[in-house]
Amino acid sequence: MNPQFKKGILELCVLSVVSRKDYYGYELVEEISKVIEISEGTLYPILRRLTEEKCFETYLQESNEGPSRKYYKITKLGKEFCREQSKQWNEFNQQVGQLIDKDRR
């Protein structure tokens, strides 16, 4: 996929994934880079920004395998933002789809 498109939806991807369950950084990076090829380091600025914008809360939790992990949990505000963003994305996607597929039909 074109990197310019990828960046735009990265924030929405992060919001959507975390809205399903709480994630720690590394786990989230793995989850997203399984589907989209990205520079993994650019996800942490997004996580920090979304936390500062009160879309996420963070908490530390011990793990059996070693040091404690910082988990990200979506807030009510984050859920609303996510819903709104995905609505916009779907509309945009549909509109572009209409234009792209016109010639083929």
């Binding site: 720690y24 950084g25 590394y26 786990e27 990076v29 993994e40 380091g41 942490y44 996580l47 920090r48 395998e65 070693g66 040091p67 992990r69 910082k70």
Partner: peptide, 13 residues
């Protein structure tokens, strides 16, 4: 510390 944790978790894997 976010990136340090990332390296630590990757090491476990």
């Amino acid at each position: 510390s976010d990136y340090e944790e990332h390296f630590q978790q990757a090491k476990i894997q």
